[in-house]
């Protein structure tokens, strides 16, 4: 891992730490819990990659982690702005995570990839679209759309990583590893910027 990658990962961890400490105070308890899980995963993942190198991505738990970040972020957003679908959406996320875990460990690979794509795709779409729609409709300040941009970026990173781990890489492994720290930093910066408009 290049020194620049380590710097990007450290900055990601610091930005996400700021968000956990300061950026989500005053929100509803459910939203705080969801955002803490999402940004917490970003902190731990960045630190572990910084310390152990990209080899940490070989762990079977990476797929779960890379899905948990968008899933919990999306759940936090839904709990704040779309609480009418909170229960079905919550069930979908929890069930989806469980199915991903089971299919990762024991299921056929094709099914594992399909489940992963569905859960990741729905969560990613929610983080991408919801803040932008809210900002365009004037329900939140315009700057909140940055959360959507962050969602788009982390969605790309998560999908690249998930399909790489699923054995069907969209891009070569080296390319994915080169862009991953920058994608993590940019998406975290966009999240922090967006949540500042809440």
């Amino acid at each position: 891992m290049k020194p620049l990658h380590r710097i990007f990962l450290l900055l990601t961890a610091l930005l996400a730490s700021y968000q956990v400490v300061q950026g989500i105070d005053g929100l509803e308890r459910m939203a705080i819990a969801c955002y803490t899980i999402a940004f917490g995963m970003l902190i731990v993942a960045s630190l572990l990659m910084m310390i152990l190198g990209f080899e940490v991505l070989d762990s079977p738990l990476v797929v779960i982690s890379s899905t948990l970040i968008p899933a919990s972020l999306a759940l936090g957003l839904v709990s704040e702005y779309l609480d009418v679908i909170l229960i079905p959406y919550g069930i979908f996320i929890v069930a989806g995570m469980l199915v991903i875990l089971i299919t990762r460990l024991a299921g056929p690979q094709k099914l594992a990839v399909i489940v992963l794509a569905v859960v990741h795709g729905v969560a990613g779409l929610a983080i991408f679209a919801l803040p932008i729609i809210l900002a365009l409709r004037g329900d939140t300040k315009g700057g909140f759309a940055w959360v959507g941009i962050g969602g788009g970026l982390i969605g790309i990173g998560g999908l690249l990583l998930s399909f790489l781990k699923g054995g069907r890489p969209i891009l070569p492994r080296e390319t994915i590893l080169t862009v991953l720290p920058s994608l993590l930093l940019l998406s975290t910066a966009a999240f922090v910027a967006g949540f500042a408009y809440l």
Binding site: F39, G40, V44
Partner: peptide
């Protein structure tokens, strides 16, 4: 300590537990 810092200590502890 403020709740924010307690949350962060909790997060970092989870990382330590995982390792």
């Amino acid at each position: 300590m403020a709740w924010g810092y307690l949350r962060l200590i909790g997060v970092l502890s989870v990382g330590m537990l995982s390792l």
